[in-house]
């Protein structure tokens, strides 16, 4: 049980890092990919919390489709962001 809690804490801290990184980066493509990483971390966390259905949905929708859609949009816009 204590192992699980360490795992939990580790992922929770990584989540904050990924969220900040995806907003920090100037290149929007990198930002979208880091947001995909954030989604996968979230999915891992939920699978560990026992919400398997939510984790599965997040893995397919959040990390799959929304990253693809974000990248598809950014391809048609400017890649650089000013802040």
């Amino acid at each position: 049980m204590i192992g699980l809690e360490i795992f939990n804490t580790f992922i929770l801290l990584l989540l904050v890092v990924a969220a900040v990184a995806s907003l920090w980066v100037r290149d929007l493509l990198v930002s979208a990919v880091v947001f995909g990483v954030y989604s996968f971390l979230m999915c891992l966390l939920w699978a560990e919390m026992g919400a398997v259905d939510v984790a599965f949905t997040e893995a397919t929708v959040g990390a799959g489709i929304s990253t693809v859609v974000l990248v598809a949009t950014i391809f048609h816009l400017r890649r650089k962001s000013n802040d």
Partner: peptide, 23 residues
């Protein structure tokens, strides 16, 4: 954030935070 895509990513992070709370 001034960039609209960044704003949308922020919106998604907001959403997932609430989902994290519920789960």
């Amino acid at each position: 954030k001034k960039n609209l895509i960044k704003k949308l990513i922020g919106m998604s992070i907001f959403q997932t935070a609430i989902i994290l709370f519920y789960v």
